[in-house]
Structures are given as structure tokens and as C-alpha cells.
Design a protein around this nucleic acid. Structure first.
Lengths: 197, 197
DNA sequence: ACCGTTTTTCATCACGCGATGAAATATACA
DNA sequence: TGTATATTTCATCGCGTGATGAAAAACGGT
């Protein structure tokens, strides 16, 4: 490969490794991704990956830990008109995931979640606390018991997760090839029904 | 382990291997499951797995290929009263998956789907053709373009898949611990709205 | 009682994995 | 210039994997 020793130009090798890791993790998930494959893609010796990151878990944490955090996005939606909440949510999530990086991030998290119990816990707690907990708190409908509200919020989340699975993982053509607008027309009212009663 | 040679009693060793494989595939999916782990669980030498099955793919095919086929179930539902279709579907799928073996099968297929592109194609085609294609054909609403109907069927499928992911994989407590009746009350009308307009 | 067949373990092979410590080279700063 | 430091590859180790061929033991039919 390259000669030994430090490279001439001021290249961001560490960044290249992270980028390569993101690509590899997003196809195949956690277990199926090898440090050697990451190194290969980054054009780098496997030992260098170990030099920068303590091990595979640390590398994974680095990759998923740099979040385009959805809190801001969510806040804006929750302050919009209440009768548009379902459609706004649907559109926001779809646009978030339809971007190339969002899509990549979703696939990555999903695949790792499926194959790695630890990731599932992380994602579960994040979703419950940071996303849907906030929604429940914001659009609270006092006429229903809290249990019911939470179930409804969970089902709204289920609809979005299922949608993403169909569109990005399973790629069922009826869903994968539909336009964002058409999907928002259908899913918006459903979310509205779950969340604002 | 055991002495060499054939075992005394008329044990169904092949069946034990299949059972062990089912258990192992269902936790960890395709890639993360090793033939050695299957053999270990079955109390058998790894080479014996190879004796009965040509290799890992063949073993996997054997395990997922024995289907409790949902066609019959589906047929019964489609002949029931149309205004109950959403609730019937929701209840049927939930009961199917809530049984221990159904749950296991779902986890297995899901994990393999997530980590193995080939499985995703299989599942996609099966869902489109055998399940939701039939629903669309049966409850066809001529006032909407076929494209729209198919999107709606796909979204109904998404809701059920997402529900199962939340309940069985992510185990978000709000959804995982709810009763079947409560979920049917909420999801039934949503499916009804997607499918029968 | 014999012999062919089936079932089972044993002993390997080659390979890819994650990890580690040492060596080589470029940069940074005095 | 000289020397400390950061960056990078090299050479391994030990382990688990999927696969294969041969040997041993029980069964089944005659």
C-alpha cells in the first residue's frame, strides 16, 4: 500500500476513516462490518483504525453519535398550527429521511438495531424520551388516560418507522416510488388522528 | 461429546438441528448465526449439520421455508363484513405474531431481512404478491386510481410492520405492553381508512 | 450372523477477524 | 539544525468460521 510512516499532505485521514465506517456500517449493520473493510475503503492500514479508535464499538459510537439532532426540527413543528401537526410531522420525517445522508443514517441505525440488541435499547430510549415523549407532553389531550396517549404516540411512531422500512429497506415499489406529497396526503391524517384527538 | 458412530435410540436428530437453527437464526439473524452455534445447541458435531444440509443457505431455507401460510387466514378475513375489515386484519396479525412461534418467526425473518439483501427481496415479493396484492384485488375501490390504492395498501402494511417492530424488536414499552384489544381499537380504524374508503 | 447403509464424530484446512507492539516516516517546535 | 511527537505501515498472535474427507458405531434387511 502506501510506504510506511506519516503521509506528506495534510490529509484528514481520521475523517476519511469515519466516512468509510459510516458507509460500511450503513450497509450490513454492526456485526457484518469489519474494521478491515473500513480500513480498505479508507485506503488505510487496519491498525490505523485501531490507532484512532479504541475498537469497533468506539468507532460505531463515533459514527452514529454525530447527530443531525432532530430536537430543533421537532420544536418548530410543535409550535405550528395544531390542526396541521400530522401533515407537518409526516413531511418533516420524510424529508429528513429522503435526503441522502438521512437515508444512510436510517439504514445504518436500522440494520444495527436489528442485529445488535444494545443498539435497540439505545434507539428505544432515545425515541421514547427525546422524540415521542416530547410530543405527548406538547399535545396532551387530558380527556384520555396517559396510558392511552402513550400507546397512540407509539403507534404514530410505528407508522413512521414502518413507512421508512417499506420505503428504504424492503423497497416495496408502491411505497418506495410514491412522491412525498402523496404519502403526506395519506399519512398526515393518520398521525393527526393518533396524536390530536 | 458423544462417542463416534450412530446413536442408539431413534432420535430425530435432523429435526433437532432444524429446531436449534430456528432458535439461533431468530436471535441474531443470518450472518451472526454460525453453524457451530447451531450444532452446539443441538448437541451435535458441526460436521453433522453439513451432512444433513448442503450449507448455511440450505439450512436457512429449510427453517424459513416451512411456513404457517397466511393465505388461509387472509381469505377468511376478506370474506367477512367489509366494515369490520380493518379491525379483523389488525386482530389477525397481532394474534399471529403474539403466539410464541409467530413472534419467533417474525424476529427471524426481520433480522435476516435487515442484514441480508437477498432475504429482503424475497420478503418484498411475498408481501406484495401473496398478501397485499390480494387485499387490493379484493377490496378494490374503483373511484381511486390503482396507483393510489396500492400506495394505501402499502401504507397499511407499513403500519403493521412498524407496529410489529415497535412491539417485538424495539420493545417500546408503550406499545409492547399494551393489550391486543387496545391496539386493535386504535389500529383497526387506521387500516380501515387505508383500505376501504 | 452377516453385510451394506445410515448416522455420527474426529482431525484437519484455509481464511478472515480483532488486537497488539514495533518500526519507519513526516511534521512541529526549539 | 536537531529532537520530540504524531502519523502510518508491518509483522504477527490467537480465535472462530465454513468446509471436507475419513473413520467408527448403530441400524436394517437377508
Amino acid at each position: 500500500m502506501s510506504p510506511r510512516g506519516r503521509r506528506p499532505g495534510g490529509e484528514d485521514t481520521r475523517g476519511a476513516i469515519v466516512e468509510a465506517a459510516r458507509a460500511e456500517f450503513s450497509r450490513g449493520g454492526y456485526d457484518a462490518t469489519s474494521l478491515r473493510a473500513v480500513a480498505r475503503r479508507a485506503g488505510v492500514d487496519p491498525a490505523l483504525v485501531h490507532h484512532y479508535f479504541a475498537g469497533k464499538p468506539a468507532l460505531f459510537a463515533e459514527v452514529v453519535g454525530a447527530p443531525a439532532d432532530p430536537s430543533a426540527l421537532l420544536g418548530a413543528i410543535l409550535e405550528g398550527p395544531r390542526e396541521e401537526l400530522g401533515r407537518s410531522l409526516a413531511r418533516a420525517f420524510l424529508q429528513l429521511w429522503d435526503s441522502p445522508e438521512g437515508r444512510t443514517r436510517f439504514e445504518m441505525v436500522f440494520r444495527s438495531t436489528a442485529s445488535h440488541e444494545e443498539s435497540a435499547s439505545l434507539l428505544r430510549e432515545f425515541l421514547a424520551k427525546e422524540v415521542f415523549g416530547r410530543i405527548v407532553a406538547a399535545v396532551g389531550d387530558p380527556s384520555a388516560p396517559q396510558e392511552r396517549q402513550r400507546l397512540r404516540a407509539g403507534l404514530a411512531a410505528s407508522q413512521m418507522v414502518g413507512l421508512a422500512v417499506m420505503r428504504f429497506i424492503l423497497r416495496l415499489s408502491w411505497v418506495a416510488e410514491a412522491s412525498v406529497d402523496d404519502i403526506v396526503d395519506e399519512v398526515g391524517p393518520v398521525l393527526q388522528g393518533y396524536l390530536v384527538r
